[in-house]
Structure formats: C-alpha cells, structure tokens
Design a protein around this nucleic acid. Structure first.
Lengths: 347, 347
DNA sequence: CTGTTAGCGCCTTCAT
DNA sequence: ATGAAGGCGCTAACAG
C-alpha cells in the first residue's frame, strides 16, 4: 500500500465558504482575473491549495459550451496519407459532435503558394480555428500571419511554416525522419558497397527537403560504402515515380538502396517488383498504408517511417480546442513520434 | 470546398419538442431504457437521426459526476518501466483531479501468485476499478474473476491473464514484440554467422515467454546463420544479468547478438561495454529509459522495442472510466503500438 | 472590489 | 408509458 490521492469532492461553493467569500470570487482567483484584493486572493488561494482543489471540468465545459467550427485545409490529389487523415477526421465525427465541434475539410492546391494563400485568406472570420497542411513560402507565411493577426487560431499539420505566427506545428521532426531512413538503409545494406537512390516529390516542399537533408547527413558521414545518386523528383505521382525508378535501376546496376521521401510509393514498388530486385535493393519509404503494408509482408519494402495520421488529426483538433477555450497549453504533450514499422511490428 | 459537418447546436429539448414528447422520453430512447412505446421511440429516433443529434458530453458528465477510486496494482522492485508508469500516473494528477478520479497505487509482489491473488481479493468493494500488472497463474485468474463477479471493473496492464474475465488488456502483443526483436537481430547482424544470446527475467512470466516464443520463431525459421543459445534467466536484476552476460561473452566467442527480454538492461549493457564488444554484438532490449537512451547514442544498444508507458497508463484509466460510466466501448481505439527506437528517431 | 443569480444540457427521481 | 422539475458545478452578467 503506498500512494494516495484523495477523492476531494469539494466544489467551488465549499472553497468559497471556507475562504469566507462568494463563488464568484473564487472563480476570479482561480482564473487569475483582476478585481480581487490581494489579501482576499491569498485567503482563497490557501483554501484551494489546502485541498488541492481543481474545478470539475464538466461544469466548466458545460457553462461555456459553444458550437465551434474548424477548417482543415488539405492538398488535392491522390496522396494516400492525406486521405488517411481525412478518414480519421471522418471517424471522429461522434467525438466531435458530442462536443459541438464542426470540421469543414477544404481541399486546395497546396503546392501552389498563391492559391493556398488565397484559400487561407478566404477563411477569415468564418472559422474559429484552422489546421493546414502548409507550404513554406512567403505568401503562405503572410496569409497565416494575417489569420493569426485577425484572431484566428492556426496550427500547421504535417508540413510547417517555421517563420510564421502559427500557434503550433503538429507533425514529426522531418530531419530526424530522414536520418532514421538513412540509418535504416545504412544498417540494412550491411557492409555492401553500392549506390543509393533518393526519390522526392519536390525539393521545394519543406518536409521533403528536411528529410533529404537528414538522410544525406547520415549516409554521407557514417556509411562511406554507400554513394548517393542525385535526388530525382516525381511530384509524388505513382506513374512518374515508376518511370524514374525503372531508369535508376537500368542506369545503376550497383543500386542497393532506395529512399522514397514522399508519396507515390506504389510507383517505386512496382518498378522494383517488376525488375525482381526486392532482394537486392533495400527500400525505405514513408507512411503506413494498405499498400505499404502489403509490400512489407512481401519483402518489397524493408521498413516504413511512419507518423500516425489518427494521432495527428486528433492532436490538431485538440490543440485548436484548447486554444479556443484558452486552456493551459497541453502543447508538447502532443508531440508526434517517428515510427519505424517493419514486417513484424505491423500495427 | 468539400465536406461539411453542421454545428447542430440542438439539445435534448429541441429533439423533444420536434418529436412531440418530453426530454425524459428522449433520454430514455437515447439510452435504450425501457418504458417507451415502440411507436413513440420510433418518432424520437427519427428526430435524433434527422439531425444526427448527439447529447453534449459535458452535460451528461456533469449530471452524473461522482468521485471514483481506482486501484493500480504494480510490482515492487526496481523495474524502471514500472517506475515510468507510476511517474506518468503521478503526472496525470491534474487530469484526474478535474474529473474526480482518485488513483491509489498498490505495490505488491506480483511475482508471487498467492500474494498477488490475496492483494486483489482485498480490493473488493473498496474501489470502482482496478488496473493490475498481472501474472498468468490460476490463483490470480480466480482472484480476477472474483473481482469481476463482484461487480468490479478490471483491466490488466502490460502483462495479461488471458483466460480471465478481465474487461480489457492494455499492453502490446508480446509475441509480435519478440518477433520484431528477432527480425532486428536478424537484419542487423546481416549475413554473419554466429550465436545469439537471450536473457529473460523469468520464463514463467507470460509476457517474457511470449516474447521468447516470437523471437525463436523468427530466428529459427528465417536466419539459419544464427544459432540461439539456451535462454538464461536473471530475474530482471541488473547485477545478475551482468554476471550472466559476462559468462555468455566468455563462453561464446562467436556471440554476435543479444536479446534482453525483460528489465535489467543496465546489467547486460555494462557487461558488453566492459568487454568492448559493442561493435561486434547486436544488442536489442526493451523499453525506452534514460539509460537505454544513452546506450542507443553510444552504440551499445542497437534498437529498443518500446511501448509507451504514458500511453498505457492513460489508456488503462480511460478504459476504466468508460466502463464505470458505461460508455460505448472505445476499446480497440486504445491499442498499444510496438515501437522501434533507434539512435535517430529518439522521442 | 465583491456577491447574487440565472443559466449551460443532461439525468433522475417522483408524479401522473 | 410519459412528463415535470430539481440539481450536478461552473461561469458570467448584473447588482451593489
């Protein structure tokens, strides 16, 4: 028998009585609102501390309940990871509804800074908060800053705009993700000597650039036996990626590893499978999907770097909710982990 | 612009008015309570469905608010992972207090079935729910069943009692965890030929037994170049583990991999470091701690199989809360992932 | 500066 | 089988 946390069914009223004030005063002290004599405040604080009193959330929530509307700005296109996030949000409908939170998904061309910026601007006043898969570009940064300036709460999702005034970024450390990919390729190719191919969507996307940076770091510094081929770009498209991969295989007989930085993994996988190279080429890609799951089981993909879409969607919404309600920052509680998924630890 | 979930600030009262009944009746229908004519129920259901109405959680919570008391039964001893879980629970104190939930941690000798069973029996009537790091033994199973029989809600934590009537198990699939360890050793030793050592706490602990089983499966079937040495048991103790590991290194010059199934990792690590074998021996262990973090950075440990203690503690409490409140099962939402942590994806 | 009071939405007796 | 009404704990508007 050891530690004990007493139930403490105290209420505001009890504390008020004990401190010899009214509930309103206790409430003021509890929330640090002004208009309380220092001396009175002290008496209240003491009573609160004495019983380690915490206001019951349900009461607070009920009394301020208000319908809220959030916008979720996501890329158009076939990107499966984004699709998964949308699915997760759809699956949260019960959770959202019972809290009077509405989420409107807005699909736009995130790859075009002007379009994205304009989409963001158009949100002004229509929402209580915005979660956006951002693009690191000055127009977008300006749009985000304008929104925040106007009192909107903004979190970036998956892809950040570092210099902006967004309240939070929900997503992984992409440099670390790239390093992880590099370390996996390095370790799994063992001591073999050969070339490593890297396929990205676009080096202009901050998350892709960061992953490549981290990847190069590790390969360059720690695996002198591996030589990186120039990064090629396939716009996250399956077909283009397949073409690129076929070419890589053809031109580099000593290719022993491939890192697909963004989406479009099916294209890369198809090229490897058709060439019958799954046993010679260590293939690392991002994001756990039905397709990558199959590839892991068949040995086409050796490891997946993952971030949990459900977790990210939930985090973004929770953070926005907390901001709107002005609750103390649960911030770094919500940090997103970089997952490594191999054949034997499939979720 | 795409999907839309309307705010729907409807309340029970609105639905009642629309269905031409009172709020009490709507409440009855919503919760499937008896005493409503089929025809009336249908009218209500229709109104509910028409607006996709969900009762506001805060209201429901407030009206049923009740102080609750949960017991957390954990092993005595130095096991760091358990310590981390306790820390996490301590860190949840604000969350718990604002929901009027008290958690009493009860330390007991989980390795002794009789003691554990008796501890469990002693909980009867004193708590609303129990989270227990269990031992798979018939006495324990009987004790768990008795508790459930008596109306207590029970979840097992980290280590399960499969045949029992516990409501949930919160923890990872340990066979898969063992397989993951096996796959990592297999892949990271590359094509080298040699022996693999396995150190467990006790083969009588179900989680250890399952991990060993999964590990053997993979090593035996897929890596003919690796030969497993007989499993040795160190009772999760640092000092004993160190002695065992020193012996393994001395007796098997061709040792190229070690899997520490349970706790006591510092002992194993020390032996490897002192022998200067960190570059020859692939070392896989469980649980991310300050110590294993250091080992990852220094290259002593190659990969950690992790389960998030914070996540587990939170899950256990949330599940118990849901059970007590008789909320629809959020069950498999709470599934715990097997994490792989290497030097570059440290949390 | 401080207190009073009317809700917030839901659940639950207690009547009918 | 159904309805009316009080209360859960907290907040905020309004008095003083």
């Amino acid at each position: 028998m050891n530690k004990e946390t007493p139930p403490s069914a105290y209420t505001l009223k009890d504390i008020a009585r004990e401190a010899g004030v009214s509930v309103a005063t206790v409430d003021r002290v509890l929330h640090g609102r002004s208009g309380v004599r220092a001396d009175t405040a002290r008496r209240v604080s003491e009573a609160v501390a004495r019983h380690d009193f915490r206001p019951l959330r349900a009461g607070a929530e009920l009394s301020r309940a208000r319908a809220m509307k959030f916008a979720l700005v996501m890329p158009s296109g076939e990107n499966i990871f984004m699709q998964l996030i949308r699915d997760q949000v759809a699956g949260m409908s019960g959770w959202l509804a019972s809290r009077r939170v509405a989420v409107e998904t807005i699909i736009t061309d995130v790859f075009n800074p002007a379009v994205l910026a304009q989409t963001l601007e158009s949100l002004t006043g229509r929402f209580d908060g915005v979660a956006v898969v951002a693009l690191d570009h000055q127009n977008v940064r300006a749009a985000v800053d304008d929104l925040v300036e106007g009192g909107m709460f903004v979190v970036t999702l998956v892809s950040d705009v570092p210099g902006s005034r967004r309240h939070y970024y929900v997503g992984v450390d992409n440099v670390a993700a790239g390093r992880t990919a590099g370390a996996l390729i390095g370790r799994l190719t063992v001591a073999r000597t050969g070339k490593i191919g890297v396929i990205a969507g676009s080096r202009l996307l901050r998350d892709h650039a960061e992953r490549i940076f981290g990847f190069q770091q590790v390969i360059g510094l720690e695996y002198p036996n591996l030589k990186m081929i120039e990064v090629v770009e396939g716009g996250d498209k399956d077909d283009l990626n397949e073409t690129l991969m076929v070419k890589l295989i053809a031109e580099h007989p000593d290719l022993i590893g491939v890192y697909n930085v963004g989406a479009g993994t099916p294209g890369v996988g198809a090229a490897i499978a058709k060439a019958g190279r799954e046993n010679h080429v260590v293939f690392i890609a991002h994001d756990f999907t039905p397709y990558t799951r199959r590839c892991l089981l068949r040995g086409i993909i050796d490891a997946i770097i993952s971030q949990d879409p459900g977790h990210e969607a939930m985090s973004a919404i929770r953070l926005l909710l907390g901001l709107v309600r002005r609750e103390p920052a649960l911030a770094e509680q919500e940090k997103i982990r970089i997952g490594i998924i191999m054949r034997d630890n499939l979720p």
